[in-house]
Design a protein around this nucleic acid. Sequence first.
DNA 1: TATGAATGAGTATTCATTCAT
DNA 2: GATGAATGAATACTCATTCAT
Lengths: 231, 231, 231, 231
Amino acid sequence: MTDWLVIRDMNAPLPTRPQPRWTRRKDARPEEIAAAALDLFVEHGYAGTRLEDVAARAGVSKGTLYLYFAGKEELFKAVVREGLVSPLTEFRSTVLEQYKGSAFDLLRILFYGWWERIGSTRISGIPKLIIAEAHNFPEITRFYIDEVVVPGQAMLESIVARGVASGEFRRVSPRETGTLLIAPLLLLALWRNSLGHYEPGAIDARRFIDAHLEMLRNALAGTPARVHKVS
Amino acid sequence: MTDWLVIRDMNAPLPTRPQPRWTRRKDARPEEIAAAALDLFVEHGYAGTRLEDVAARAGVSKGTLYLYFAGKEELFKAVVREGLVSPLTEFRSTVLEQYKGSAFDLLRILFYGWWERIGSTRISGIPKLIIAEAHNFPEITRFYIDEVVVPGQAMLESIVARGVASGEFRRVSPRETGTLLIAPLLLLALWRNSLGHYEPGAIDARRFIDAHLEMLRNALAGTPARVHKVS
Amino acid sequence: MTDWLVIRDMNAPLPTRPQPRWTRRKDARPEEIAAAALDLFVEHGYAGTRLEDVAARAGVSKGTLYLYFAGKEELFKAVVREGLVSPLTEFRSTVLEQYKGSAFDLLRILFYGWWERIGSTRISGIPKLIIAEAHNFPEITRFYIDEVVVPGQAMLESIVARGVASGEFRRVSPRETGTLLIAPLLLLALWRNSLGHYEPGAIDARRFIDAHLEMLRNALAGTPARVHKVS
Amino acid sequence: MTDWLVIRDMNAPLPTRPQPRWTRRKDARPEEIAAAALDLFVEHGYAGTRLEDVAARAGVSKGTLYLYFAGKEELFKAVVREGLVSPLTEFRSTVLEQYKGSAFDLLRILFYGWWERIGSTRISGIPKLIIAEAHNFPEITRFYIDEVVVPGQAMLESIVARGVASGEFRRVSPRETGTLLIAPLLLLALWRNSLGHYEPGAIDARRFIDAHLEMLRNALAGTPARVHKVS
DNA sequence: TATGAATGAGTATTCATTCAT
DNA sequence: GATGAATGAATACTCATTCAT
């Protein structure tokens, strides 16, 4: 009566199942991925960078990227943020707080420190990245403006204003002068990360910064004329 | 002096690699994994189900799946097999063997028992799964046909044939009639596992089965005319 | 004085540019793509269908798909909608409007017409698709319920109600009975698009529909009237 | 009778293949294409710019692009070349040849002329483009260095050298000083084509250039001579 | 000459599977 | 046994390029 429902053996030989197709390579660390990504983003731009190349340079697989970053865009943002925040923090604590002496001395410390901590490192590629991708990443650009441009400009203006107030500097507009102070450094950073590869000796960073400082010393110097008049 | 460069909180620092490489979570039991897998396979289909979700629902890790099942395909087969074999066995022993009385009474017992053991449980999702994946899993489909469809159909035909032979049923074709007996129940199972989620009150299972039985009673009834004539 | 800015010739020989890597194949028509997609979606489900295969079956390239459909999901929706709307419209105009005579005659016309226009065509794959993907495509499911299930059920209930009102049918519940009328046809459609491939001769559609109609004739027959006449 | 199956409006019928295969739209001129391309290249970078968008902005079809430019790369090169060569030629003939008077007057003419012919026009986007794509287009970079950077630098150095020789300028290094002269202008160009869109009022070009000139006047002034005269 | 539908190589992203811990 | 980070084949989707009209 009930043998309609006899259940026979499953004769189930799995036809095909491929053998292990990969081997573990290494323990991935997000820092290495971010460093590799920064290099390639700086070199080829956002769209021009292939995640496969990022993975290869970091020594991990493509899939590992997605373990730490939600996608290409998030990787880019993380890389830029990370490339900015940590150096800025370090810059502030190791350079700015060393200040002693005149406004001009502060500029010197600032410029040398910038070269040491930013200009001569891979971080100097970030500005190029921001400039190149500003239209494509409004959020990142906004962040850069708010966190770097605005406070940096404020700092420079403040130094100028102090120098002017104390008579150390000529009566100049802090606004435009602040920007003029940083322009050669920015150009240096951009140069080093783009055309500089084709003309390696074109700009000697140390001589360039020194020349800039020397120009500034004369450009900003409080009028010695009055001093002479008095004497 | 240095608060020009205050860096606001960053909501997205570089992700860090988690330290403890693993901790034992629970004692895994394959039954729980299979139950979770059945739910998700029924819900999203084979290809649409991610093993990660199965593991999460079962409360185990992805790796644990592979301790008990050779792979996704094997998990699927095991789930379907297990979802079929054990309920069928139980169905057979608890429902079919209760048979007493007329052919029509057997149908009633069968239908109510089916609802109790199959239709109202998660097992009712299996037919949907089979229908959806028939082309992708010939082996499983073959198994289902051999173990469920063919014996089930044979059983139904046998009941019809007995009813016809005894004069309880009208002279109908056992083949087509057997299939017609089960069609509404199958539809009910499919409905409950698909569209039913969107129109929960559309079908009242009890009333539906009863209406089906009542239809059958009239449709199959041996011609009372002759009986009256004789008496 | 001005020869700093002499512009030299661009000595620009383009190093590499590959030659034409493809040849035009044919004029694509979205109908062919949709037909190919319907076949494959019915066969392998949504996730199991590769757009590359759809393109190949339609005789076009992968890119051409995106010329007409925004993506896989949109293709799926378009295919289902198109598979429903146009046949339903035709069904309505060519079958339903032929109605003449009794309620039972209408059922016969309906069932035969359904088989002619839906059941025996590739459109019969749509229900399987809907059932399988209901959870993954709420929008499509909603559409199917609103446009097919609800009006179809209403139509069936209306036929039953008319038959009951005129005394042609026994006093049955239009709700459950309406669903019972369509159940075997739906099962037939599902069978033909799934398990039927493995057991081609298992169901003879014509005999099955005829048996269903014959069952209904007896099940619904308004016998009481005749009894009263006799007595 | 048949309004059970009313099918509501479908908002998405199968797309149809457009009938007229093409109609002439306009007389294309390569200048318009190049202008559109320059805008988009500056905005989104090389890889981020789609030729389809270039064509749309130029008001021509994609195919027309290829009538005038061999491909994306060639379009890019042509755009950069054209964006450089013609303005440089014009700049040379209309600005540089107006030279009269002192070295400092020449700087003023140079800067104002640069702003008039380059800085305030879309040509100012080229430097950003070069910086961003330097690694991807060695050939274009080489061209830019040879045709713009080197002669431009030579010109600046020559002006400085002349000023120093005549005693008008302090004894400064022509090399570094030449670069320092142009740095703020370049920064201005870059700013206007990237971050400037987010902070439109941040830099007032006229005031900025004037401030730069004023700084230079003081920085370069050959004061020692006068002192000697007085003494 | 101008068009834009058709093409397919290239790339971002997913997820089944492995294995060191 | 149990874990989950790492892997890379597979696949959806993009877009520079071609060519019949």
